[in-house]
């Protein structure tokens, strides 16, 4: 790490090497050690966590908040801030993150879904095989080969009465029945 280019090969031309820049970098890097990086990372994480918590706490208010510039807002000087604040769509960068995470999550779900679909399909097929939805017989009846002639016949009754009501009443009151 400590200027390896200068130490290693003697016969190489070092004129192109930005020695001064490297030197200053070396100095600065010596100040940074592993522990410090860890601390910094922790601080960043803490900050991010607090930011996330704040955002989620005020998410309702923030979702309804409408930003608009007042007349005395220095539009020219603060153009970038203004455009950022007034931006309705997410930044392309942010969009990428969203798309990326969506893709990842969809991929996972799709994979699960395929298994689920397979399971459901098999279940439906099995269940359908167990039941017979056509005809007037249960699978049990078909398996046992029930004779259809034993069934109760539901049929239209076209038979005509032998005697009309009046003829029957006549018999009840007078005792005479027409011979048929």
């Amino acid at each position: 790490m400590q200027a390896p280019t200068t130490q290693n090969e003697q016969n190489i031309d070092h004129s192109g090497v930005p020695i001064e820049a490297l030197e200053s970098l070396r100095l600065r890097l010596t100040q940074v050690n592993k522990c410090q990086i860890g601390d910094q990372v922790n601080i960043i994480f803490t900050q991010l966590a607090s930011l996330s918590a704040t955002l989620s706490t005020y998410s309702e208010t923030l979702a309804k908040t409408v930003v608009y510039p007042l007349p005395d807002f220095p539009t020219t000087e603060q153009e970038s801030l203004l455009t950022t604040l007034l931006r309705k769509k997410a930044l392309p960068e942010v969009n990428e993150w969203i798309e990326d995470s969506k893709k990842k999550s969809t991929d996972i779900l799709l994979k699960d879904d395929e298994d689920l679909t397979d399971w459901a399909l098999n279940l439906v097929i099995n269940q359908r095989d167990e039941h017979e939805f056509r005809g007037f017989h249960t699978k049990k009846e078909i398996d046992e080969q029930i004779n259809e002639d034993d069934d109760i016949k539901i049929k239209q009754d076209f038979s005509r009465p032998k005697y009309s009501i009046d003829e029957v009443l006549k018999f009840m009151y007078q005792g005479s029945l027409p011979t048929k």
Partner: peptide
Amino acid sequence: LDISDRNSMDSRIG
């Protein structure tokens, strides 16, 4: 249900 012929319910000696 309907009304029947009154003659069919006549039990008089005809």
